[in-house]
Structure formats: C-alpha cells, structure tokens
Design a protein around this nucleic acid. Sequence first.
RNA 1: GGAGAAAUACCCAAGUCCGGCUGAAGGGACUGGUCUUGAAAACCAGCAGGGCGUUUGCGCGCCGCGGGGGUUCGAAUCCCUCUUUCUCCGCCA
Length: 428
Amino acid sequence: MLDIKLLRDNHSEIIKRLEMRNKDFSYLRDVVEWDKEVRVIKTNVEELKAKRNETSKRIGQYKREGKDVSKVMESIANIGNDIKVLDDKKQELSNKINEALLNTPNVPHVDAIQGVDETMNKEMRKYLEATEFDFEPKPHWDLAVELDILDFDRGAKIAGSRFTVYKGLGARLERALYAFMMDIHAIDNGYIEIIPPYIVNSDSLYATGQLPKFADDLFKLEVEDKQYYLNPTAEVPTINLHRDEILDGQKLPLKYVSFTTAFRKEAGSAGRDTRGIIRQHQFNKVELIRFCLPEQGYDMLEEMLLDSEKILKLLQLPYRVVELCTGDLGASMAKTYDLEVWLPSYNNYKEIASISNAETYQARRANIRFKRNESSKPELVHTLNGSGLAIGRTVVAILENYQQKDGSVLIPKVLIPYMNCDIIRKRG
RNA sequence: GGAGAAAUACCCAAGUCCGGCUGAAGGGACUGGUCUUGAAAACCAGCAGGGCGUUUGCGCGCCGCGGGGGUUCGAAUCCCUCUUUCUCCGCCA
C-alpha cells in the first residue's frame, strides 16, 4: 500500500513513477483531496468529542456531589448525533481512500526499466551456455512418460488438467530437490526453516497484495460461512508470520526459507504452457523471505539473488538473470530479478525463480514494523521474497538438460546422495 | 461434534455482578539512586505501548482493557457478534 503521507506531499512525482507501469493513476489526485476533507472533518469531530468527554466527566462529578445535572445534560443534548453524522461521513471517505490505495500497485524503483512487457526485460548476466546435444533432445513431457516418472493422464483422471502424478524416481527427484534446497539455504546460507499452513485467510492475502485485485488466481474454499484460500506462494504465509508485529531492529534482517505446495488457478493462462509440468495448479516451491531495515533492502535483494543462483550453479544448469521492466513487474514489488533456466524443449530460457523487494508496500499493508532501539519510533521494514527455487521447473530443467541419447537422465552430482542413484533409466 | 471457562499494559494480576472519583490497583521485570570493597538483598524514585489530528516548537486533543458493532450524557464494566486460548467428553492421523 502507498503511504498517504508521501502522496500528500509528492503526488505528482508518485503518479509519474506509477505510470511507468503503463496505466492511468490520475485518480490518486482525488484521493489526495478526499484525504484533505477527512482531516478537516476529523478536527471537527475531535473537538466535539473533547467537549462531550469533558461534560460527561462533570456529570459524574455533580452526581456524586448530589447536584442537579439536567442543565448540563441539556447543553450536550444533540452532540452524540452530530458526532455520529460526521463520523459516518469521515468513514465513508476513509473507505474510498482505502479502497483506492489497496488497489494501487507499488511504486517502481527509481531506476526501474520502463517497458511494456517481458520482451523489454534486461539481461544482466548468464551462467553456462545453452546445453548442446549431439542428438535430438526430447521435451520433458515425452522423456518423463517414457521413463514412467510422470503420469499426466492419471493426474487428469484424479483431479483434472494441469495436475500430474509423480512416480518412482520422478517422485524421488522432487523430494531430493526440496530437501537439497532447504539444506543449502538453512545450513549454508543461514535461513530459518519454515513450514507454514497451506491454507490462508483473506487478511493474509490482503497483507501481501494478492487481494483484492487478484482473487481470480486463487483457489477459494468455503467452509461453513468462512472463507479460506489455498496458499498461492509461500510468500503469503511467511510474510504474514510477522503481521501486526513490531520487530527488534537489532535482530534484523530476519531470514526465512519456507517450503510449501503452491496452488494457482492459472485463470489467465489458458493455452499457455499446456504440455508438461511447467504450469500446474499445484507445485512445490522453496521460498526465501527477508525482513530488513529499509536502508538494507537493496543489498539484501542482491544477496538473495546470489542465494538463489547458488542452487542453479550447484545443479550445473545454464541460466541467466534478468531485471524485470515496469510492464512485467508484479503489483506488490518495486524491483524484481528473474532467474531463467535454459529449457531445450522451449529452445529458450524459462522463469524458474523471481527475487523481489516490496520495500514497505507489504509491510504497510501487513503492519510489520521494527524499532531501532527501545526508545525509537517504529518504522516499516522492507520485505523481500525470492524463489529458491520452484521445484517442478527444476525437475524439468534437470530432465531436459541432463538427458542422454538413450533416453536416460543423469543425476546432478550434488543430488546423488539425496537420490541414492546417479541415473534415471527406463525400468525393465 | 458436545459441555464449560477465559482474553486487561513487557509478564503475572485486581477491577466486570451494582457504568462515572480506573487514561486502569498491586506485584514482577526494566531504568536511575541510596547502602556495599564489589555483588546480592533491602530501601527510594521513574515507568503502558501504539495510531491519528493539530502546532514553528513546548504542547493540546482524539482513539486504544482480544477484534467489530450497539445502548448511554458517560462503557474495561451492560447488550450483540466474531476470533483465539484453556478444561472435560466424543472422534481421529
């Protein structure tokens, strides 16, 4: 959420930067006006309330002393009603302001790349060259079916399209990958391990910015009269660990690595990535989350990027780092890097991780603050999140990049202890 | 699923039946001091946090007793509603 105070002082500048997202944000000028009105009303209401408080106190005092009270009562006869009328008016305006702010995305970073879509993202660096084969490489959807490690038909039978059964060494590869990633981040990189609830409430989703605007992407559960949602990304439960809390500034940054199964409706993705397990309704993901001081935010972002890259390096997968342009930037984020892994079946790079700084956007919505020391005022933290990595897509990358001419798949060295084997072959 | 009980400031806890002198007793912790070679103990003193408005500033005001709403001139206290926790019974990995 935007800071209304910043908006008061700098709305032209902020609107200008928001419009780098290629949308119209002129309605924020109205918000500034409503805000002025609210403050005028507030002053009036508070004066009335002060008067009422004072008079009521006097009534109590008079009663104790046995004095007549009717005259004092008369003097504030209609004050309650007046207060109510003004309060309602104020509430109405506040709601309008709030709704507008909740629907407004984050302000892109000052140096953000202006662009309309992913074609204008900027490649920062590359690791390894695209894998070369001396045979025709197979896409993972063929390879995995031949190896009998993924079963698309039965996934569809059990649940529906975009659901897949992992089987045999396919299932083990998935399990090996998340154990491996959790180990690297928790043991080597110093993150605290988290397994959060996979069902979240709407407060949590408002806090991280999935609601109110992106309800269509979420699986919703109605249980009696209550509404729950399936976790769309570990970012949601993990950022919400500290909703409505004041953290100890001395203990920042807080670093968490969170393992979840993520559920997404992929409502706007009909026809995209329909083959294989690139885009599923259900997938596993290891997610890095940090809460830090505002001045640390961008150093933390670079550090997290390296933490994610480390996984790809250890797995010896070719990838590149891109910085997202404003047209491709998620609504809650000020700056985002994507890691894109080389996929022979796409003959291109494909997103496997996304590492972002939300600055204070989520912290303000979630009310997550810190104190530098005991006597200082609370300030909003920066929240960062990054994949470390998406497991399903890592499975794809390994299958496709490590495949051999005979249809078997070598296991990356670092995974062998987790897999208890060094190759996936067709079962006899 | 059934039956009860509870939620007060950093922690414990009084107040809630019978609304006003509770902007919240008391204790612990914490901070400062006295005493002591030093420490402990004892004693003295200080001490709710947060949000918002207004002001050049000192300050002033509004809102906060789990959340939301209501009754009232006035609510920690009365009413409605939601959430969470605990105890017992049932069921269960």
